[in-house]
Amino acid sequence: MEIAENAALVVVDVQKGFDELDFWGRRNNPEADENIASLIDTWQTTGRPVVFVRHDSSRPDSPLRQGHEGNGFKEYVEQRRGKGAAAELFVTKTVNSAFYGTPDLDAWFRAEGISQFVVAGIQTNMCAETTARMGGNLGYEVLFALDATYTFDLEGPFGWRRSADELAQASAVTLHGGGFAAVVTTKDVAAAA
């Protein structure tokens, strides 16, 4: 694996509200936060750009709504913001994809000459996956650090229920098998960077 000198790390929605398990339910991958922190540290140490994305939910009961403490970044992310030597971008969004946020992520990538990025964050099968898919559609080389993401059990139509692990695996298979992104581990990405 080769990581470009200006490859961006896109840290998606690592917000305090995701710790409100009474709202979300059972999560997977308890090591995700440690892996996300490790990737931020690696990117900042190697002088690569980091994009911090925050979801501003419009749902009045969401732990991610503006004005609620859960809207803020988790402490380990907040402590790392502004610490790198390279460019840093803060994007807010109200939908799943960071490419539909403010400021325009695609325009910023193009202005900075960035053609490769790594996705980490929450939730694996929601905003992280959607951002990776759109990046692939827009022609970027996308690496998806699966073990630096997590999600929650979910119920869908017809009473179908899938565990967080099953949903994460389905995301990995779809992204990798569908050609949207290369699904990788934090260890491999950090070693290549």
Rank of each mutant, 00 (worst) to 15 (best):
T94S: 09
A111R: 12
L89M: 13
Q116A: 08
Y100A: 13
S97W: 13
Q66N: 12
G82C: 04
E112I: 05
G84A: 08
R65H: 12
G84R: 10
G121L: 05
E88A: 05
F109N: 01
D104T: 05
V119Q: 05
E75C: 00
A107V: 14
R110F: 00
P63C: 02
V91Y: 08
G101F: 01
W108V: 05
G101H: 02
R81W: 01
S62Q: 12
P60R: 13
E78Q: 04
A98H: 03
P103S: 07
F73N: 15
L105P: 11
K93R: 14
V119L: 11
D61L: 09
N96I: 03
F99M: 00
V119G: 05
S115Y: 02
A85P: 04
A120T: 10
E78P: 01
Y100N: 12
G121A: 11
V118Y: 06
V91H: 11
G70H: 14
P60K: 11
F90P: 01
A87Y: 04
T92E: 12
I122N: 07
A98M: 01
A120H: 02
V77Q: 10
T102G: 01
G70E: 15
V91W: 09
D61G: 09
F109I: 04
T124H: 09
A85F: 07
E78C: 00
G70F: 14
E78R: 00
V95W: 12
V118D: 01
E69W: 03
G72C: 13
G70R: 15
W108A: 10
P103H: 11
S62F: 09
A111N: 10
R110V: 08
G84C: 12
Y76A: 02
V118M: 06
P60W: 13
T92P: 06
A111V: 06
E88M: 00
R65W: 02
A86P: 10
E78I: 02
I114T: 14
D61P: 09
E78W: 02
D106S: 05
N71V: 12
K93T: 12
I122M: 13
L105K: 13
V95I: 15
P63R: 00
T92W: 06
T124C: 00
Q79P: 03
G70P: 15
Q123G: 07
E75T: 13
W108Y: 14
E69L: 04
E69V: 08
F73Y: 15
Q79W: 11
T102A: 09
G113W: 09
A86V: 11
Q123T: 15
W108S: 11
A85N: 02
G82I: 05
P60S: 15
E69K: 07
D104C: 04
F109W: 03
R80L: 08
T94C: 00
G84Y: 11
G84V: 08
G67C: 06
D61Y: 09
S115W: 04
R65F: 02
H68D: 14
A87P: 04
E69N: 06
E75N: 06
E75Y: 06
P63S: 03
G72M: 05
D104R: 05
R81F: 02
Q66I: 08
P63T: 02
G101D: 00
Y100E: 10
R65K: 14
Q116W: 11
F117H: 14
R65V: 09
E78H: 03
T102Y: 01
V91M: 07
G82Y: 03
